[in-house]
Design a protein around this nucleic acid. Structure first.
Lengths: 224, 224
DNA sequence: CTGTGGTCCAAACAAGCGTTCGAAACCGTC
DNA sequence: GACGGTTTCGAACGCTTGTTTGGACCACAG
């Protein structure tokens, strides 16, 4: 609109340039995480994301480089966040038990962080759903990170090996694998199916109670 | 080749028309199941499938109607197969225990069928990987089937409720959910990661031993 | 006022997708 | 040998995909 040039172009104080950029970036980030959590990686297009975020189509490539880079960015952020939380809880368990935490404390440090995010009313629910999806549907880049993620998991397997000296290492690894299965099975679709099966009995759950249930189950499997 | 008409056209007995059609159909079926198990539903194109099968691009639409219909066909076949196997084992457990099978027998009927397919050298390995993928990446049509699948699962939840009269029903449903998590977590990527973590200790497993391990773990979680 | 660097935007791009089409090829049967 | 029904084939269709482009817009500095 060239006729606006000599109008009141300094009338209202628009938000800063930089702040707007950050806003757009965040809008894209949040929308992408949500849509991916709901419909999967390949099931969401760049146009879906920008439409949900209310920004221009080119925003993703401008701010993140590519669709893959965007999702890798989300994945990296959430994975780091989760790993830090788990490491912190394992560290606390170590401190509380003089470096020899029992199985239950280790399993709690492993299970509690992601399940804490599963509050149905919380905004982190999509983050954990995103991570669960990324585990099976992610790009090659994500798989590589998950493989290096093994070094993070090793802290838990080492702790469990120390806590179960009378168990064959092979056995410990399998049971750790089973315990992780409890967490990874909590996709929206699975929880819905469980609600249907139980006729609503499991529809509303209290987070702390759910964590306790899961740790109970895993601990029993470990110590049986 | 019109010049062959008056040649020896009855020289070699070519395979029947019908048999060839079945062959093409099966080639597509097998290739699609394999590729989907490896790379996911949306990650495999019609051209990928037909190339792998060594057939013409149009074969999928001719024999199955559409890509969706093809994958639904595979899904339906494998799901039916698996459900039948589980139902049969549950029925046998019922017969062996006068209609009141213990928790362990019920869990075995639930877990053994899919894990029996997990023989690393067997051809059914891709089938179970396909089903695990379909659970989270499937089409809406597949989801609907999985929802109706609840009626099949209910036989198991009912049996477990009867076997655990002292447990709150809510608790039984959650533990059934956890037990299913053990099975669904056995994707290729997860097994690979476990092998890396255990430094090869879990790389080669014996099926019967793995089933016993999983049933042990789930049973302990149930009876704790 | 005039550049300057950063951001946004509408439009277009090439590539890949699932699907369709008409003709060719094939079979068993007349 | 010619016919009719089924299957295969190469080529094309229309559409969606992720990405790129060139210019408009804005706040700020010279």
């Amino acid at each position: 609109m060239p006729e606006d040039i000599d109008g009141q172009d300094t009338a209202e104080p628009l938000p800063l340039n930089e702040a707007e950029a950050v806003a757009t970036r965040n809008l894209v980030f949040v929308a992408a995480e949500r849509l991916f959590a709901l419909h999967g990686f390949q099931g969401v297009s760049v146009r879906d994301i920008t439409a949900e975020a209310g920004v221009n189509l080119a925003s993703i490539n401008y701010h993140f480089g590519s669709k893959d880079a965007l999702l890798f960015d989300i994945f990296n952020r959430r994975t780091t966040e989760l790993n830090r939380l788990r490491a912190k809880m394992l560290h606390e368990a170590n401190s509380a038990h003089a470096g020899k935490p029992p199985v239950r404390a280790i399993l709690h440090a492993l299970i509690a962080p992601p399940v804490l995010w599963m509050d149905p009313k919380g905004e982190r629910l999509v983050s954990v759903q995103f991570l669960i999806r990324a585990r099976s549907e992610g790009t090659h880049q994500m798989r590589d990170v998950l493989r290096s993620d093994v070094s993070h998991l090793r802290r838990f397997s080492d702790a469990l090996l120390a806590a179960c000296p009378n168990l064959a290492p092979e056995e410990v690894y399998w049971r750790l694998h089973f315990s992780l299965g409890l967490v990874h099975n909590n996709r929206f679709a699975e929880l819905d199916r469980l609600s249907t099966l139980s006729e609503g009995l499991t529809r509303e759950y209290e987070i702390e109670r759910l964590i306790a249930r899961m740790v109970d189950f895993a601990e029993a499997g470990f110590l049986r």
